[in-house]
Simulated scan of single mutants.
Amino acid sequence: MDFRKIDNLSVDCVVLRLEENTLKVLLRKRALNLYDENSPVIDDWVLPGHYVLKSNNLGETANRVFKELTGEDHLNKNQFRTYGNAARIKSDKDLLWVRSRGAKVRTITVAYYLIVASNKDLLDMDDSLKWFKLKSLPQLGFDHHQIINDAYEDIKGKIITDPLIFDFMPIKFTLNELQMAFESILDVELDNRNFRKKVSSKSYIVPLEEKQKGVSKKPSRLYMFSKDVYNQVVETDYIINK
């Protein structure tokens, strides 16, 4: 394997999850202090990513990032956009960071997003990694704010017709949890009765002979998403109506 990097081609990864019905994104701390009064101090956040190795393609590079975070090889990643504007790296901090890494100022970035289930823990969540609310992001490097917004818009555009919502869910979930997930991501309020009627008609949302455990109120029935059934009966109508 050729471990040399292509120094003007990178992959950035938007990792998203729902936590207490709030959409969050995973960011990595970016810090650099050259103790030079002519050089800016870098202390902000960026998306997890890597430069592409000469022996890797784009998908393999994204897999490398996601495996470092999740420990899994085969994930349902989504490539959604490429960023190659000549002026995308222009601030003093960004220029210093790129040069400190021996990379090119003109860099093309291919962006992927990965949805992590609400009950899944990531590997090695040290101080350099942190979940932030999508609506309350810290100071970000490069054009990563735009990349995050574009990932979110892509998800909102697909989540009604594609089964992306189930990537946010634990394997077993209640209809109420599913509805709250839709409402949180789309920032809408859905009619409970209509939602349940619509969802109950979908053969790939499978009712189980199980109910919630450890809840103080009356436990609700649990359901699972069947990808096999979905692939057999994939439809053109929406899972929900906005």
Rank of each mutant, 00 (worst) to 15 (best):
L95H: 12
N119A: 11
K213R: 12
D43M: 05
N76L: 10
W45Q: 04
G214Y: 10
K104Q: 09
R99E: 15
M125Y: 02
E189H: 13
F80Y: 14
N78R: 08
L134H: 10
R30I: 10
S100R: 04
W45R: 06
S91K: 10
F66D: 00
I165A: 04
Y152T: 07
D124F: 08
V15C: 01
Q179F: 07
Q79W: 05
L114W: 03
E37N: 08
H145Q: 13
F195K: 10
N176R: 12
M1T: 11
L26E: 03
K29T: 14
M1K: 08
A103P: 00
T22G: 03
H144V: 08
A151K: 04
I115P: 02
V188W: 01
D124W: 08
L18A: 06
S201G: 14
E20G: 08
N149L: 07
V206T: 06
H74G: 07
S10D: 14
L27P: 04
D92W: 05
F66M: 12
N21L: 01
F225L: 06
D12T: 04
T109H: 01
K29E: 15
R17Y: 05
A151F: 07
S128P: 00
Q146E: 13
K29N: 14
E189I: 06
S100F: 14
T22S: 08
V65R: 00
S203R: 09
S200M: 14
D73T: 12
V65Q: 03
D73L: 15
L16W: 00
E68D: 08
N119S: 12
Y83R: 08
E68L: 13
V41H: 07
A181V: 02
K156Q: 08
N57S: 10
N119Y: 04
Y204W: 13
R30K: 12
A86H: 15
S184I: 03
L69A: 02
Y238W: 09
V110D: 07
A151R: 01
K130F: 04
Y238D: 13
K133Q: 09
L190G: 00
Y51D: 15
F132Q: 12
L9N: 11
L129C: 02
K77L: 07
I165N: 02
K242E: 13
I42R: 11
K198W: 04
E209H: 09
L164F: 15
K135P: 03
K24I: 03
N56F: 11
S10V: 07
K202Y: 10
D92R: 03
D36I: 00
F132C: 14
P219M: 08
N194S: 13
I240N: 01
F142T: 04
D167F: 02
V116K: 04
K227I: 14
S201W: 00
K198E: 12
I185G: 03
G102W: 00
A103R: 05
N38T: 09
Y83L: 12
H50D: 15
I89V: 15
I115D: 01
I205G: 02
N57A: 07
K24S: 05
I115L: 10
L222C: 11
M125C: 00
L190F: 03
Q212H: 05
D44M: 08
F173M: 12
S203N: 12
G102M: 02
V233H: 06
N241G: 11
A111N: 14
